[in-house]
Every structure is written in structure tokens, then in C-alpha cells.
Amino acid sequence: MREPDDNRSAYAIPSSDVELAVLLREHYGILFHYLLKVTMDRPLAEDLAQETMLKAIEHIRRYDGSSKFSSWLITIGTRLHLDLLRRRQRERKHLTEQARTNALRFETLARGGEWTDLSESLASLPDDVRTAIVLKHYYGYTYEEIGEMMATSPGTVKSRIHNGIYKIREEWKHDEANG
């Protein structure tokens, strides 16, 4: 299990503006990298990270230290992302998935990174499926924790992950067979 790197401030409840600022600054990287994995869209990940930080400041009293601070931020970010997807579906205003994937692929390669067939498979998944897979297989959350974050049942989470992994696996097998 790969937990977010929380160190000593994992469960700290900030009692002043300075403490809160320190905590948010420490966790920005974790939050941004999580949002980048689930959105596969760098500008969107940055916007959502900023919005999450502002929401966290506004609702800091709701954080009681019972979970890691990073988990709390991830929950806020996840819900903001899912709300945005619902709005986009209603307004029918969104770039095609392919356009977003192309943008990220281009930027990854421009920065000297690697863009593999697996990256392509991940990008082609529905956002909610990809989110569940990232939370389970990178951050190691349980189905119940993921259900809580995504405001859905553990059964739905399990089903999304199973279907998503199945789809990726079939494409991966196909790619390996073709060399």
C-alpha cells in the first residue's frame, strides 16, 4: 500500500492561521498529484487543487483528526471533481476526452516523461472508474473508505474497480501479444 506521505502532521488539527498555512503547503503536492492521476488533465488538476485548498480553509472546523489530513483533502477534492463532472454532463460543455488526453500526452512528452499504452488505457477510462482505481491501487484505501470519499456504496466502488481493471487488462494483454 502506498500511503500519501503525511509524516508528523498526519492527524494534526491546526489551531492558528499559520499552522493551517503550513499544513496546506505541506500537502499541496500530495493533493495535486492525486488530482492529476484522476483527472489526467493538468490545468484542471491545478484548478481543483486550489479550490480544494479554499474549501479546506473554509471548513477546517469540520476536520477532527480522526482521519489523515491528506485523506480529508482527497475527499474534498474527489467530491469537487465529481460535482464538476455532473455539471459538465448537464451543461454538455466539455472538451472531448481525446482532446484532454492529447494535451496531457503532449505535455508529458515535452517534459521528458514517459507516455505508455497503460497511460492511454487509464486516460480512456470514465473519470469515476479511474478515481476508484487510483484510490484503491495507488493510495491503498479500502472499498468502504473509497465509498465514503465518492459518496457511493462500497459495492459500486468494487464493481467500478473490477470493470476498470478488466478493461485495462484486456488492452494490456492485447498490446503485449502484438509486441
Binding site: 502506498r2 492561521d17 499559520v18 493551517l20 498555512a21 503550513v22 496546506l24 503547503r25 499541496y28 503536492g29 495535486f32 498529484h33 492529476l36 492521476k37 493538468r42 485548498m53 479554499l54 480553509i57 508529458t108 517534459r111 521528458g112 516523461g113 514517459e114 505508455t116 497503460l118 497511460s119 487509464l122 482505481i133 487510483v134 491501487h137 495507488y138 481493471i165 485495462i168 494490456w172
Partner: peptide
């Protein structure tokens, strides 16, 4: 799953974050 984790880690390394100075964060808060 291991290959996926490697893919995600590569993405993190490619898009490293630069933190703004603490006083800026304090002002935002």
C-alpha cells in the same frame, strides 16, 4: 497493478510541484 503504480509514479515525477513561499499561503488563509 505494479505496472499501473509505476505509471502513476512516473506521472508524479514528470509533474513535480514547486511550492510558493509560506507567507503567500498565510495570506490566502
Amino acid at each position: 497493478i505494479q505496472a499501473l503504480q509505476e505509471t502513476w509514479s512516473n506521472l508524479d515525477r514528470t509533474f513535480e510541484t514547486e511550492l510558493t513561499p509560506l507567507p503567500d499561503w498565510e495570506a490566502v488563509v
